[in-house]
Design a protein around this nucleic acid. Structure first.
Lengths: 230, 230
DNA sequence: TAGGCCGATATTGTCAACAATATGTCCGTT
DNA sequence: AACGGACATATTGTTGACAATATCGGCCTA
């Protein structure tokens, strides 16, 4: 959940780190609404912090694109338009395609075994909850998370997990999946995992790109039909 | 040069912003060597800053991956291995391919005219300086910069210009181009620009990917032959 | 009455002193 | 003599007070 795994924040966590994690999850979970203006003092009492570490965390959030700062005028939570959300998926298509290819070439056999087991667990979840749960409970991101890590490409995983996913997850709760899509998405995940298991990098890349492309089209339709308001 | 254009830091620049820019260029230019350990106090007197803004800048640099922090033990400038440098080019290949495609679809006619004019100027520079100057004087990055901006994809340009290029440019001065490569690179640039001028997105993407792939192979050869030490 | 200017206020940016922690050294022990 | 542990030191992390600036309301003018 936290970013700890990514940047091996080896030893003691500093308060600024805590503040960073708190704020990040607050933004992603929607506790701080997109577009909302946030004041330093509010946040201080809200998270029981002093302004120093808080400001440091705010700066880091800004540099990750989750907050927007206007000098002397405070921060506000980033809010992206429908178009920008779609653009995010185009980036994902390119980057995760690469990640899938490299993962197919570089994941250990053990990691692949785990990946397949993860999909089994996801299948149970989807059956059990009639497809509702998959996206809601971050299972989807678990899958993509493992692919990103499996690429053994430090910068790539850093950019995917640190920059893109948080933005996408901000709008996750509104993207209640259309009926049937979870099953379809899970099938697509499995085909990607199979390609990885066969060490077929090109196929994995192709399938991942098509998978994310499908998700993008799904969102575009929702925006078109007006059932998704940003 | 600065990041100002990217994030429209509309009004007054704060000292932390200055510190950020100073440190960033210092790292990119090599004034702060890769792997070098930097102490807060040293930097304070070096850039005539106080610790508050400095720390904020350091945090932002860390979150961009140019610095690495160990809690209570200071920062050091990131130093990447040859493998990691190559991985960077794989990411560029995927992302800039997308950027080129979107640029072909979205740049204004005026921007395209300017782009072609830019290449004319570059040609003069290359002829005049026998090919030395192209990479050295950031002309190369000017071209890629315009493509990234032309994609009209905010996050994409932000990631390319804010995350990737600075890391690549850190190692630019060591990548003295092999004889003849600048001319070749310029030809490739021109073919990409032509594809964009013809609004052929798929071709532009293909050519850009091949262009960056060639640059990657060039680097891999240098590493192999031992003529590039990291 | 509408528009723009100006100042009070609250918020952000900056500073310098204090507390907590890692590093490196010295000493004692084995 | 070499290793391990504890201490001193220097560096980082944190705090609260101070200075600078944008926002908002009221006032004046056209």
């Amino acid at each position: 959940m936290s970013v700890t795994i990514l940047e091996n924040r080896s030893q003691t966590a500093t308060r600024a780190d805590d503040a960073f994690d708190c704020l990040q999850t607050a933004i992603v979970k929607g506790d701080l609404a997109p577009g909302e203006k946030v004041g330093e003092i509010d946040l201080c009492e809200r998270f029981a912090l002093t302004r120093g570490p808080l400001r440091e965390a705010l700066g880091r959030l800004e540099s990750r694109g989750l907050l927007i700062r206007r000098p002397h005028a405070g921060f506000k939570v980033v809010s992206i338009s429908g178009d920008e959300l779609v653009e995010l998926y185009r980036i994902r298509e390119a980057m995760e395609g690469l990640a899938a290819q490299q993962a197919a070439e570089r994941m250990t056999d053990e990691e692949i075994t785990d990946l397949l087991a993860l999909l089994d667990r996801h299948e149970e979840m989807v059956d059990q909850a009639q497809g509702q749960a998959y996206y809601q409970h971050e299972g989807d991101y678990d899958f993509h998370y493992r692919i990103a890590m499996g690429s053994r490409n430090r910068k790539l995983s850093q950019m995917l997990l640190g920059d893109l996913y948080y933005m996408v997850r901000m709008y996750r709760y509104r993207l209640s999946t259309s009926a049937g899509r979870p099953h379809k998405a899970l099938r697509e995940h499995r085909s990607i995992a199979d390609a990885i298991a066969q060490r077929d990098g090109e196929l994995a890349r192709f399938l991942m790109q098509r998978h994310i492309n499908a998700a993008r089209l799904n969102i575009e339709n929702k925006i078109q039909s007006g059932s998704l308001t940003l």
